[in-house]
């Protein structure tokens, strides 16, 4: 999992079947000094994360696992971060 921040959202009326009500948010991956790393990406969300939330997201085939029946999802928010301790 990577640390990230919810920085926005998208609207899309035309979607593949099964994704009609799936929330898709815009994420900025961060390091643990909360500096931006990598590039922005889109992720599904199973936690109800609000804008500006610090979250953990997972990528790859595993990101589709929470969905039954399976959905074509390759990134998903899986936790909302309350707090962390980090010593570089």
């Amino acid at each position: 999992m990577y640390l990230g921040k919810v920085i926005g959202r998208i609207e899309a009326r035309v979607r593949l079947p099964g994704l009609e009500t799936q929330r898709i948010v815009l994420l900025q991956p961060l390091d643990f000094n909360q500096q931006p790393i990598r590039w922005t990406l889109l992720a599904a969300d199973v936690t109800g994360a609000a804008d500006e939330s610090l979250v953990l997201f997972e990528e790859g085939r595993e990101a589709a696992n929470p969905f039954d029946p399976p959905l074509p999802i390759d990134a998903c928010i899986v936790a909302i971060v309350d707090d962390y301790q980090y010593q570089a």
């Binding site: 199973v46 929470p66 899986v78 909302i80 707090d83 301790q85």
Partner: peptide
């Protein structure tokens, strides 16, 4: 290992 994260709201499998 560089630290720990706490998250109350998370996927139940965790």
């Amino acid at each position: 290992v560089k630290g720990t994260v706490t998250a109350t709201r998370k996927h139940p499998s965790m």
